[in-house]
């Protein structure tokens, strides 16, 4: 059963403020991820306070970097259930976890941040890894 919308509203808004586009329906997920071109970060949002509470600020810090994905989109696990399930089909080789982040280039997963790589870490530490992944996979020389 999805969470109370009032509970997740601040977590949604935090992502929108970062410039992420919300994918709330299967059609949204297909439109964004089907035949995906260019570079994209998919953030699987979550209510988990200990992990998601650090992942969102980490993304905010990482998005201050010079090298960025062309698009940032987000689905909300446990809330937009169908959209999240459909989005995960586009990186199905990775086991579902939330929060998590998939970095895509032309539809291929080039980097994945699992929940276990977020747990217990500071936002800055997570952001540092994200920035390295941006440079490696989205830099001009790629």
């Amino acid at each position: 059963m999805p969470y109370n919308p009032a509970l997740v509203a601040p977590m949604r808004e935090e992502m929108v403020r970062l410039g992420a586009r919300e994918l709330t329906t299967v059609a949204d997920a297909d439109a964004a991820l089907g035949d995906q071109k260019g570079t994209m970060l998919v953030f699987v949002n979550s209510v988990c306070g200990c992990a998601a509470g650090n992942a969102r600020p980490a993304l905010r810090l990482a998005l201050e970097h010079a090298v960025l994905p062309q698009q940032v989109v987000t689905v909300f696990a446990g809330q937009d259930v169908d959209a999240t399930a459909r989005a995960r089909q586009y990186f199905a080789e990775y086991q579902p976890s939330s929060p998590s982040m998939a970095l895509l280039r032309d539809g291929e997963v080039v980097h994945f941040v699992h929940r276990h790589q977020i747990e217990g870490r500071s936002p800055q530490s997570i952001a540092d890894d994200l920035v390295k992944a941006f440079d490696k996979n989205f830099g001009a020389a790629v």
Partner: peptide, 8 residues
């Protein structure tokens, strides 16, 4: 598991 995540 480290690369692809945990299959619970």
């Amino acid at each position: 598991s480290a690369k692809f995540g945990v299959r619970a």
